[in-house]
């Protein structure tokens, strides 16, 4: 099923590169809702997430000819475009609203963070990523999920977990190394 999905998406990308708009629509119908969810996890606000996905689809359309299997799965490539645009928007926005929204952001962060850190246990029982995440100690797992699920920087992970920056960086680095080893 997963394989089949990937073939459909890869074919759709090559049709996009030929200028076939129906193919882009097909990607939107299969993945659009979930791409919004990914962006919203990072940006927290639905309307920003939709803006990001709108931009992402224009990028997918214009860059479809650059996709090749050596760049990974078609779906991974598509989601990476949405993720990157969400992270860019997050980082640009943070610069602008450093001061006034602090306490509100904290509240929101705390709520959505708890959710993000638990969500991995929704992975299917036999999923390799789930198994490898479950083998990590909690600090490393949390650090990695904070970055991937919510777009936290090293500094924000350190702040949230109340450890020095170097410790947070080391947790991320070692956790990622363990995951690579485990998932080979």
């Amino acid at each position: 099923m997963q394989q089949n999905d990937q073939t459909i998406l890869a074919d759709a990308l090559s049709a996009c590169a030929q200028g076939k708009r129906d193919a882009l629509r097909l990607i939107f119908e299969r993945e659009g809702g979930r791409m919004i969810a990914v962006a919203q996890r990072i940006l927290r606000r639905r309307e920003l997430a939709e803006d990001v996905v709108q931009e992402a689809f224009i990028v997918i359309w214009t860059k479809a000819d650059q996709y090749a299997p050596e760049r990974g799965s078609a779906r991974g490539w598509i989601y990476a475009i949405a993720r990157n645009r969400a992270l860019n928007m997050l980082r640009d926005g943070r610069r602008l609203e450093l001061t006034d929204a602090d306490s509100l952001a904290d509240l929101q962060d705390a709520a959505s963070l708890d959710h993000s850190l638990d969500v991995w246990s929704d992975l299917e029982q036999h999923d390799r990523l789930r198994e490898c995440l479950s083998r990590l100690d909690e600090a490393k797992r949390q650090s990695i999920l904070m970055a991937y699920m919510s777009g936290y920087t090293h500094g924000e992970i350190a702040g949230r977990l109340r450890v020095p920056l170097g410790t947070a960086k080391a947790w991320v680095r070692r956790g990622l190394a363990s995951l690579r080893e485990c998932m080979v």
């Binding site: 979930r34 990914v38 991974g76 989601y79 992975l123 999923d127």
Partner: peptide
Amino acid sequence: RDRFLALD
């Protein structure tokens, strides 16, 4: 990318 994709 493909290692973490399951989370998305």
